[in-house]
Simulated scan of single mutants.
Amino acid sequence: MPYAQADGARLWYEEAGSGHPILFIHEFGADHRDWEDQMRFFAREYRCIAYSARGYPPSDVPTDPGLYGQDHAVADAAAVLRHLGIARAHVVGLSMGAFAALLFGLRHTGMATSLVLAGVGSGSPRAEQAAFRVACQARGERLAAEGWPGAMAEETGHSPTRIQLKKKDPRGWAAYMQRLSEHSGPGTGLTMQHYQGGRDSILDWEAALRGMPVPTLIAVGDEDTPCLETSLFLKSVLPNAGLWMCPRTGHAINLEEPAAFNREVAAFLSTVERGRWHLG
């Protein structure tokens, strides 16, 4: 198995295709496998890399809580690229992965050809942040104690921003639920407590975001309620960003509407590569 060494963990990755690199960073309720539709589509013209975050086998599952959090998530993305000898890449993230992609754009601006931020920003609005952090701590404790098979997976799969996948694509939802049940309870529990529940509000980065020049596509489903406010905020402050809202779609936008997602991302990447994204 191919691994990239990061601080305190080995990160398992897979790659396909050739061309300008795209790095895919998965959400909390996923792993590298949930990018399969994108890997197959974009590998026709790009070098595509997807990896599993620390805490998600076959990547390592550290037991030290200090080895989880937003700083590690950003450093891990850079570690994968450096391991592969990649100087610059398009970076595509969903939810937790989009948070890491955005912070990657701030901290490693020169390594990001562009950013795609899908389903980004839950827990960031001021009125929601305290309750979000409390909920993350409680859920992390449950995951560590119970694991995913059973109640935790069922609650996630039937939640208000994920039930859309089941309604649209029952077969795809069943495959998603199978993958979800295979995640590490301890690894995702620590991730939930120390990354999800310990991360900044994106709104705290406003000053830095206003100066970030990386071409950015913000993608959100119109039924992904926890991410709507932050997506609109990012559109208002990022100087080089566009917003795509997909109708009748929840949180896992790349799984729910893979054709639409791939089409919009492909058009964005093409426009960036032709130097036509910035309208200023």
Rank of each mutant, 00 (worst) to 15 (best):
R10H: 11
A16S: 12
G17M: 01
H20G: 03
F24E: 01
D31K: 05
D34H: 14
W35G: 02
E36S: 12
E36I: 12
R40Q: 15
R44F: 00
C48L: 10
A53Q: 12
A53V: 05
P58Q: 00
T63L: 06
P65E: 10
G66F: 03
G66E: 15
Q70R: 06
D71G: 14
V74I: 13
A79T: 02
A79R: 04
A79W: 07
G85H: 14
A87E: 15
L102I: 10
L117V: 03
G119R: 13
S122E: 08
Q129W: 11
A131K: 15
A135K: 14
E155K: 09
T156P: 00
G157I: 10
I163C: 07
K166E: 06
D169Q: 03
P170D: 06
P170A: 13
M177C: 13
S181F: 01
S181H: 01
E182G: 13
M192D: 07
H194V: 07
Y195E: 03
Q196E: 10
G198Y: 06
S201T: 12
I202V: 14
L203F: 14
A208K: 15
R210N: 05
P213Y: 01
P215W: 11
L217H: 07
E223G: 13
S231D: 01
F233Q: 03
F233G: 11
L234K: 06
W244G: 05
P247K: 00
T249N: 00
G250K: 08
A252K: 06
N254H: 11
E256K: 02
A267S: 12
L269W: 03
V272D: 02
E273V: 04
L279A: 09
L279Y: 00
